[in-house]
Write a protein that binds this DNA or RNA. Structure first.
Lengths: 246, 246
DNA sequence: TTAAATACCGACCGTCGGTCTGTAATAGGG
DNA sequence: CCCTATTACAGACCGACGGTCGGTATTTAA
């Protein structure tokens, strides 16, 4: 009734399996989200990047927000799987395994320094609240149970003495999440021309953080040690060198 | 050119001072946000509730998000002012004043149980991420410096022994913020018909939380005590009785 | 008294998430 | 191998909503 001719197709498009198509769209979305943020990316952008039409997109995803869940939970699963693997292949007491787990998550983050750098920038910009909230939620969902189980293990072994395993797990995750803001400020400082000061501050921060975790677990100071403060500070401050262009 | 007649005005409207008009719009927005959430409230809704036009609204606020900042920072300022007042009029050592401060914030929340109840419902519903994030940010902005100052005081007095005052302050605020989710679950449980179990769980939670704060501040167990766990649990569980209709 | 500034009005607009109708590609039974 | 059902996809269209703009009423100041 409305279309006289309905045949100006573009190309005879090769078809992917649903899973591959879904993954391809998620890949495109991930790149765009980390580059431009949540609000700034329209579904039209994702459509162009993934080279698919509106109809095709909404065939695989029910809404724009589905992209978030997909991207974020994929990342969180990868991170926790890596950390869990590292912990499992570690022989030693509960504390040693605990440190191995946290060290692995830090390593995972270090390997993704570029994305992290983008995230650190994004949290300053409005319109990304949803993205950040979903990242935090996914991290919590994935990490808290793992931590809680390890803490219970340690308590059963008689090494940890947490007032409440779940609450302690949540507190630890909260600490690592709010580290993001410290990192952001440090990156700003490093960009402003004081990289060594930023590195020192980050090192001091991670030292204080591990001291807090000692206390939360009822351990003597210096028990928890999943990274070298100086190294950590330097590594994070180095992130500021590679600049992001929007 | 496009409007033949431009005179069908509605009413000769009394004019308010800019501050009063702004406050009136904020009042309307606050009611709506806590009743329906962020995404569900359109500026048109606010316009109707505040009985003002689009043009008038955008004369006082630059964007819908300005409403959030206004509403949220107003609330946070009120809360902290109340808590600070309570602390100042308290004679005693740093720990006593600390407890007075936290007790006052709890009392302030209890007085606003209705709004809190709405918030506890809202965090389940999508579209409120921005609202919640802003509330958290405002709470952090307002409370962390106050806590940090008190912790430094206590450390100077030789009573507290925090590894890092600012970090400890942030950890404490993180704990109180994440309490929201515990409260949400408890309310759900109470609504589902197990109010006494919910009260018990809330009591246990706040007990564990204060124990954590003891440790963070380097105090012996039982030092921090800003509410009675049983009372707190009961009070919060009671909130579930009054139901919210959307 | 009058001109400038301020408060306010409401029609209009652009963008963007989401829908709908219809078509090409695949799967499967005969 | 054809024919049909189903799935994957295309793209025009829509409605909602945040925000703008030209204009009008009210207040202030000179």
């Amino acid at each position: 009734m409305l279309s006289e001719d309905t045949h100006p197709r573009t190309a005879p498009r090769r078809r992917l399996t649903p899973e591959d198509r879904r993954a391809a769209i998620l890949d495109a979305a991930q790149v765009l989200f980390f580059a431009k943020g949540w609000d700034a990316v329209t579904v039209a952008d994702v459509l162009a990047e993934a080279r698919i039409s509106k109809g095709g997109f909404y065939h695989h995803f029910s809404a724009k927000e589905d992209l978030l869940d997909g991207v974020v939970s994929r990342l969180a699963e990868q991170a926790v799987a890596a950390a869990e693997a590292s912990r499992r292949q570690c022989e030693g007491d509960a504390l040693t395994r605990f440190n191995a787990f946290l060290a692995a998550t830090n390593r995972w983050k270090a390997e993704r320094a570029t994305e992290l750098r983008f995230i650190a920038d994004m949290i300053r910009r409005p319109g990304n609240e949803l993205l950040l909230q979903r990242i935090d939620a996914a991290v919590r969902r994935a990490v808290v149970p793992a931590l809680e189980a390890m803490i219970r293990d340690g308590a059963a072994e008689g090494r940890f003495d947490p007032p409440d395993p779940k609450l302690v797990a949540e507190a630890i995750v909260s600490l690592t999440i709010s580290r993001r803001e410290v990192l952001r400020d440090a990156i700003a400082a490093a960009d402003a021309g004081a990289p060594e000061a930023a590195a020192a501050r980050l090192g001091a921060h991670i030292a204080a953080e591990t001291a807090l975790v000692d206390r939360l677990l009822g351990l003597p100071p210096g028990s928890v040690h999943y990274c070298d403060p100086a190294e950590f500070g330097q590594m994070m401050a180095d992130m500021a060198c590679g600049h992001a262009a929007y």
